[in-house]
Protein backbone atom coordinates (compact mmCIF):
# COMPACT_ATOMS: atom_id res chain seq x y z
CA UNK A 1 0.00 0.00 0.00
CA UNK A 2 2.83 2.37 0.90
CA UNK A 3 4.48 1.59 -2.43
CA UNK A 4 1.27 2.50 -4.26
CA UNK A 5 1.15 5.85 -2.45
CA UNK A 6 4.84 6.39 -3.27
CA UNK A 7 4.17 5.56 -6.91
CA UNK A 8 1.30 8.06 -7.03
CA UNK A 9 3.27 10.79 -5.29
CA UNK A 10 6.41 10.26 -7.37
CA UNK A 11 4.41 10.19 -10.61
CA UNK A 12 2.92 13.60 -9.74
CA UNK A 13 6.35 14.91 -8.73
CA UNK A 14 8.00 13.71 -11.94
CA UNK A 15 5.26 15.35 -14.00
CA UNK A 16 5.99 18.60 -12.16
CA UNK A 17 9.72 18.24 -12.86
CA UNK A 18 9.11 17.41 -16.50
CA UNK A 19 7.08 20.63 -16.88
CA UNK A 20 9.88 22.55 -15.21
CA UNK A 21 12.42 21.02 -17.59
CA UNK A 22 10.20 21.94 -20.56
CA UNK A 23 9.95 25.53 -19.33
CA UNK A 24 13.75 25.80 -18.95
CA UNK A 25 14.28 24.29 -22.39
CA UNK A 26 11.75 26.60 -24.06
CA UNK A 27 13.23 29.66 -22.36
CA UNK A 28 16.79 28.78 -23.44
CA UNK A 29 15.80 28.05 -27.04
CA UNK A 30 13.76 31.29 -27.11
CA UNK A 31 16.72 33.33 -25.83
CA UNK A 32 18.98 31.83 -28.50
CA UNK A 33 16.43 32.80 -31.15
CA UNK A 34 15.99 36.33 -29.71
CA UNK A 35 12.50 35.63 -28.39
CA UNK A 36 11.08 35.92 -24.88
CA UNK A 37 9.58 32.42 -24.72
CA UNK A 38 6.82 31.46 -22.26
CA UNK A 39 5.77 34.62 -20.42
CA UNK A 40 2.11 34.99 -19.44
CA UNK A 41 1.06 31.85 -17.53
CA UNK A 42 2.50 32.09 -14.01
CA UNK A 43 5.62 33.99 -12.92
CA UNK A 44 7.84 34.35 -16.01
CA UNK A 45 5.70 31.83 -17.85
CA UNK A 46 6.59 29.03 -15.44
CA UNK A 47 3.11 27.52 -15.66
CA UNK A 48 2.98 27.57 -19.48
CA UNK A 49 3.77 23.81 -19.91
CA UNK A 50 1.01 22.99 -17.39
CA UNK A 51 -1.38 25.36 -19.20
CA UNK A 52 -0.56 23.67 -22.52
CA UNK A 53 -1.14 20.24 -21.00
CA UNK A 54 -4.51 21.25 -19.51
CA UNK A 55 -5.56 22.88 -22.78
CA UNK A 56 -4.83 19.70 -24.74
CA UNK A 57 -6.57 17.55 -22.11
CA UNK A 58 -9.75 19.59 -22.52
CA UNK A 59 -9.78 19.60 -26.33
CA UNK A 60 -11.98 17.52 -28.59
CA UNK A 61 -11.01 13.86 -28.77
CA UNK A 62 -10.68 12.78 -32.40
CA UNK A 63 -9.86 9.28 -33.58
CA UNK A 64 -9.23 9.15 -37.33
CA UNK A 65 -11.34 6.72 -39.37
CA UNK A 66 -9.48 3.45 -39.72
CA UNK A 67 -7.36 3.92 -36.60
CA UNK A 68 -7.48 1.48 -33.72
CA UNK A 69 -9.19 3.40 -30.89
CA UNK A 70 -8.40 0.85 -28.19
CA UNK A 71 -4.68 0.86 -28.98
CA UNK A 72 -4.71 4.65 -29.23
CA UNK A 73 -6.06 4.69 -25.67
CA UNK A 74 -3.78 2.04 -24.18
CA UNK A 75 -0.47 3.13 -25.74
CA UNK A 76 -0.38 6.76 -24.45
CA UNK A 77 -1.17 5.58 -20.91
CA UNK A 78 1.44 2.83 -21.15
CA UNK A 79 4.04 5.23 -22.58
CA UNK A 80 3.59 7.82 -19.83
CA UNK A 81 3.62 5.08 -17.17
CA UNK A 82 6.82 3.51 -18.55
CA UNK A 83 8.55 6.89 -18.86
CA UNK A 84 7.72 7.62 -15.20
CA UNK A 85 8.51 4.11 -14.02
CA UNK A 86 12.08 4.16 -15.39
CA UNK A 87 12.68 7.40 -13.47
CA UNK A 88 11.98 5.57 -10.20
CA UNK A 89 15.17 3.53 -10.69
CA UNK A 90 17.32 6.66 -10.73
CA UNK A 91 18.51 8.00 -7.36
CA UNK A 92 17.43 11.61 -7.80
CA UNK A 93 16.42 12.57 -4.25
CA UNK A 94 18.70 10.35 -2.14
CA UNK A 95 21.55 7.96 -3.04
CA UNK A 96 19.02 5.11 -2.70
CA UNK A 97 16.31 5.10 -5.36
CA UNK A 98 12.75 3.96 -4.71
CA UNK A 99 13.36 0.74 -6.67
CA UNK A 100 16.74 -0.93 -6.73
CA UNK A 101 17.92 -4.46 -7.37
CA UNK A 102 21.01 -6.05 -8.97
CA UNK A 103 21.25 -5.39 -12.71
CA UNK A 104 18.45 -2.81 -12.82
CA UNK A 105 20.43 -1.00 -15.51
CA UNK A 106 19.59 -3.79 -17.96
CA UNK A 107 15.96 -3.48 -16.98
CA UNK A 108 16.10 0.26 -17.72
CA UNK A 109 17.63 -0.35 -21.18
CA UNK A 110 14.83 -2.82 -21.94
CA UNK A 111 12.07 -0.53 -20.70
CA UNK A 112 13.36 2.51 -22.57
CA UNK A 113 13.67 0.39 -25.73
CA UNK A 114 10.03 -0.65 -25.35
CA UNK A 115 9.07 3.05 -25.28
CA UNK A 116 10.70 3.39 -28.72
CA UNK A 117 8.89 0.32 -30.04
CA UNK A 118 5.54 1.71 -28.79
CA UNK A 119 6.17 5.00 -30.59
CA UNK A 120 6.81 3.11 -33.85
CA UNK A 121 3.53 1.27 -33.24
CA UNK A 122 1.64 4.55 -32.71
CA UNK A 123 2.69 5.81 -36.10
CA UNK A 124 1.52 2.63 -37.80
CA UNK A 125 -1.92 2.35 -36.14
CA UNK A 126 -2.91 5.72 -37.61
CA UNK A 127 -3.94 5.40 -41.25
CA UNK A 128 -2.21 8.54 -42.51
CA UNK A 129 0.76 8.71 -44.88
CA UNK A 130 2.57 11.33 -42.76
CA UNK A 131 2.05 9.22 -39.69
CA UNK A 132 3.33 6.06 -41.40
CA UNK A 133 6.37 7.85 -42.82
CA UNK A 134 7.08 9.34 -39.38
CA UNK A 135 6.87 5.89 -37.78
CA UNK A 136 9.22 4.41 -40.39
CA UNK A 137 11.66 7.25 -39.83
CA UNK A 138 11.50 6.81 -36.07
CA UNK A 139 12.08 3.09 -36.55
CA UNK A 140 15.25 3.82 -38.52
CA UNK A 141 16.39 6.36 -35.95
CA UNK A 142 15.58 3.93 -33.15
CA UNK A 143 17.71 1.17 -34.66
CA UNK A 144 20.54 3.66 -35.15
CA UNK A 145 20.74 5.24 -31.70
CA UNK A 146 19.97 2.18 -29.58
CA UNK A 147 23.39 0.52 -29.95
CA UNK A 148 25.47 3.58 -28.93
CA UNK A 149 22.90 4.30 -26.20
CA UNK A 150 22.99 0.80 -24.73
CA UNK A 151 26.78 0.53 -24.96
CA UNK A 152 27.36 3.95 -23.38
CA UNK A 153 24.97 2.98 -20.56
CA UNK A 154 26.90 -0.27 -20.08
CA UNK A 155 30.26 1.55 -19.81
CA UNK A 156 29.71 2.92 -16.22
CA UNK A 157 28.50 -0.55 -15.23
CA UNK A 158 31.74 -2.11 -16.48
CA UNK A 159 33.92 0.53 -14.83
CA UNK A 160 32.13 0.33 -11.47
CA UNK A 161 31.77 -3.46 -11.66
CA UNK A 162 28.03 -3.44 -11.04
CA UNK A 163 24.91 -3.25 -13.19
CA UNK A 164 22.91 -1.64 -10.38
CA UNK A 165 22.41 2.14 -10.68
CA UNK A 166 22.59 2.60 -6.91
CA UNK A 167 25.98 0.82 -6.91
CA UNK A 168 27.25 2.91 -9.83
CA UNK A 169 26.23 6.05 -7.92
CA UNK A 170 28.01 4.77 -4.80
CA UNK A 171 31.14 4.15 -6.89
CA UNK A 172 31.24 7.92 -7.55
CA UNK A 173 30.86 8.73 -3.85
CA UNK A 174 34.60 9.48 -3.51
CA UNK A 175 34.18 12.58 -5.67
CA UNK A 176 35.51 11.22 -8.97
CA UNK A 177 32.68 10.98 -11.50
CA UNK A 178 32.80 8.29 -14.20
CA UNK A 179 33.08 10.97 -16.92
CA UNK A 180 36.76 11.27 -15.87
CA UNK A 181 37.33 7.60 -16.84
CA UNK A 182 35.11 7.62 -19.93
CA UNK A 183 34.53 11.10 -21.44
CA UNK A 184 33.76 9.56 -24.84
CA UNK A 185 31.02 7.44 -23.28
CA UNK A 186 29.35 10.54 -21.87
CA UNK A 187 29.39 12.33 -25.25
CA UNK A 188 27.97 9.22 -26.96
CA UNK A 189 25.26 8.89 -24.32
CA UNK A 190 24.30 12.55 -24.63
CA UNK A 191 24.06 12.41 -28.44
CA UNK A 192 22.08 9.15 -28.34
CA UNK A 193 19.70 10.62 -25.78
CA UNK A 194 19.13 13.74 -27.89
CA UNK A 195 18.08 11.37 -30.69
CA UNK A 196 15.98 9.32 -28.26
CA UNK A 197 13.96 12.36 -27.17
CA UNK A 198 13.73 13.51 -30.82
CA UNK A 199 15.30 16.90 -30.34
CA UNK A 200 16.94 18.93 -33.10
CA UNK A 201 19.14 17.96 -35.02
CA UNK A 202 17.71 14.41 -34.83
CA UNK A 203 13.99 15.21 -35.07
CA UNK A 204 13.61 13.50 -38.45
CA UNK A 205 10.60 11.49 -37.25
CA UNK A 206 8.61 14.67 -36.54
CA UNK A 207 10.10 17.09 -39.09
CA UNK A 208 7.18 19.53 -39.12
CA UNK A 209 8.22 21.26 -42.34
CA UNK A 210 8.54 17.97 -44.23
CA UNK A 211 6.05 15.49 -42.78
CA UNK A 212 3.88 17.82 -40.67
CA UNK A 213 4.78 16.27 -37.31
CA UNK A 214 5.32 12.66 -38.45
CA UNK A 215 3.95 9.97 -36.16
CA UNK A 216 2.21 12.63 -34.00
CA UNK A 217 0.24 14.30 -36.79
CA UNK A 218 -3.03 12.39 -36.31
CA UNK A 219 -3.02 12.73 -32.52
CA UNK A 220 -5.13 15.30 -30.74
CA UNK A 221 -6.60 16.20 -27.35
CA UNK A 222 -5.65 14.08 -24.38
CA UNK A 223 -3.74 11.58 -26.53
CA UNK A 224 -1.43 14.31 -27.84
CA UNK A 225 -1.17 15.69 -24.28
CA UNK A 226 0.03 12.28 -23.08
CA UNK A 227 2.53 11.84 -25.90
CA UNK A 228 3.97 15.28 -25.18
CA UNK A 229 4.11 14.47 -21.50
CA UNK A 230 5.97 11.26 -22.35
CA UNK A 231 8.53 13.23 -24.37
CA UNK A 232 9.04 15.63 -21.43
CA UNK A 233 9.41 12.72 -19.03
CA UNK A 234 11.90 11.12 -21.41
CA UNK A 235 13.93 14.35 -21.50
CA UNK A 236 13.95 14.33 -17.70
CA UNK A 237 15.00 10.66 -17.78
CA UNK A 238 17.76 11.42 -20.29
CA UNK A 239 19.22 14.22 -18.19
CA UNK A 240 18.88 12.25 -14.94
CA UNK A 241 20.57 9.20 -16.48
CA UNK A 242 23.54 11.30 -17.65
CA UNK A 243 23.88 12.78 -14.16
CA UNK A 244 23.54 9.45 -12.32
CA UNK A 245 25.83 7.41 -14.57
CA UNK A 246 28.54 9.88 -15.57
CA UNK A 247 28.41 13.13 -13.57
CA UNK A 248 28.69 11.82 -10.03
CA UNK A 249 24.94 11.92 -9.26
CA UNK A 250 24.23 14.18 -6.26
CA UNK A 251 27.72 14.05 -4.83
CA UNK A 252 29.52 17.36 -4.49
CA UNK A 253 30.96 19.82 -1.96
CA UNK A 254 29.12 20.56 1.33
CA UNK A 255 27.32 17.22 1.23
CA UNK A 256 28.68 16.10 4.60
CA UNK A 257 27.86 19.34 6.39
CA UNK A 258 24.41 20.02 4.95
CA UNK A 259 23.20 16.43 4.75
CA UNK A 260 21.10 14.58 2.23
CA UNK A 261 19.17 17.69 1.09
CA UNK A 262 22.42 18.81 -0.52
CA UNK A 263 22.48 15.56 -2.52
CA UNK A 264 19.27 16.58 -4.28
CA UNK A 265 20.53 20.16 -4.78
CA UNK A 266 23.69 18.91 -6.52
CA UNK A 267 21.73 16.42 -8.58
CA UNK A 268 19.33 19.14 -9.67
CA UNK A 269 22.11 21.60 -10.58
CA UNK A 270 23.79 18.95 -12.74
CA UNK A 271 20.43 18.01 -14.27
CA UNK A 272 19.83 21.64 -15.28
CA UNK A 273 23.32 21.78 -16.81
CA UNK A 274 22.59 18.72 -18.99
CA UNK A 275 19.24 20.22 -20.02
CA UNK A 276 21.06 23.46 -20.84
CA UNK A 277 23.48 21.62 -23.14
CA UNK A 278 20.61 19.73 -24.85
CA UNK A 279 18.69 23.01 -25.33
CA UNK A 280 21.79 24.78 -26.61
CA UNK A 281 22.30 22.10 -29.28
CA UNK A 282 18.59 22.31 -30.11
CA UNK A 283 18.76 26.08 -30.44
CA UNK A 284 21.86 26.41 -32.57
CA UNK A 285 21.57 23.46 -34.94
CA UNK A 286 19.40 22.71 -37.94
CA UNK A 287 17.67 19.40 -38.61
CA UNK A 288 19.84 16.81 -40.34
CA UNK A 289 18.65 14.77 -43.29
CA UNK A 290 17.67 11.13 -42.76
CA UNK A 291 20.78 9.83 -44.56
CA UNK A 292 23.02 12.18 -42.56
CA UNK A 293 21.56 10.94 -39.27
CA UNK A 294 22.01 7.31 -40.27
CA UNK A 295 25.57 7.97 -41.43
CA UNK A 296 26.46 9.72 -38.16
CA UNK A 297 25.16 6.86 -36.06
CA UNK A 298 26.22 3.82 -38.07
CA UNK A 299 29.52 5.12 -39.42
CA UNK A 300 30.81 7.04 -36.41
CA UNK A 301 28.78 6.48 -33.24
CA UNK A 302 28.56 2.67 -33.34
CA UNK A 303 32.32 2.08 -33.89
CA UNK A 304 33.16 4.76 -31.29
CA UNK A 305 30.85 3.12 -28.78
CA UNK A 306 32.61 -0.22 -29.26
CA UNK A 307 35.96 1.54 -28.86
CA UNK A 308 34.68 3.05 -25.61
CA UNK A 309 33.53 -0.39 -24.50
CA UNK A 310 37.04 -1.81 -24.99
CA UNK A 311 38.57 1.20 -23.20
CA UNK A 312 36.13 0.69 -20.31
CA UNK A 313 37.27 -2.93 -19.97
CA UNK A 314 40.87 -1.69 -19.76
CA UNK A 315 39.92 0.91 -17.14
CA UNK A 316 38.19 -1.79 -15.11
CA UNK A 317 41.30 -3.96 -15.39
CA UNK A 318 43.49 -1.12 -14.10
CA UNK A 319 41.06 -0.35 -11.22
CA UNK A 320 40.98 -3.96 -10.08
CA UNK A 321 44.78 -4.38 -10.23
Amino acid sequence: MILLIYAFALSALFIFFSFLIEWIERKIVARIQSRIGPFFAGPRGLLQPLADFLKLMSKEDIVPIGADELLLTIIPILLASLATFVLMFIPIFTPDPLISYPADLIYIIGLSASIGALIVMTGYINPGPYSNVGAARFGELFLSFEIPFAVSVAVPAIISGSASIAEIVKFQENGIPIIVFAPLGFILLLISLIAKVEKVPFDIAEAETEIAGGWQVELSGRRLAFYRLTMNLETLFAAALCVALYLGAGYGPLLDTLGSAMYFVWFFIKLILVVFVISLIEGIMARLRVDQVLRIFWRYMVPLSFLQLILALFVRLIITL
Partner: peptide, 9 residues
Protein backbone atom coordinates in the same frame (compact mmCIF):
# COMPACT_ATOMS: atom_id res chain seq x y z
CA UNK B 1 4.99 0.26 -8.18
CA UNK B 2 4.40 -0.12 -11.90
CA UNK B 3 0.71 -0.87 -11.34
CA UNK B 4 0.50 2.24 -9.13
CA UNK B 5 2.03 4.36 -11.91
CA UNK B 6 -0.31 2.77 -14.44
CA UNK B 7 -3.38 3.50 -12.29
CA UNK B 8 -2.22 7.10 -11.79
CA UNK B 9 -1.88 7.74 -15.53
Amino acid sequence: TFIGTLIFF
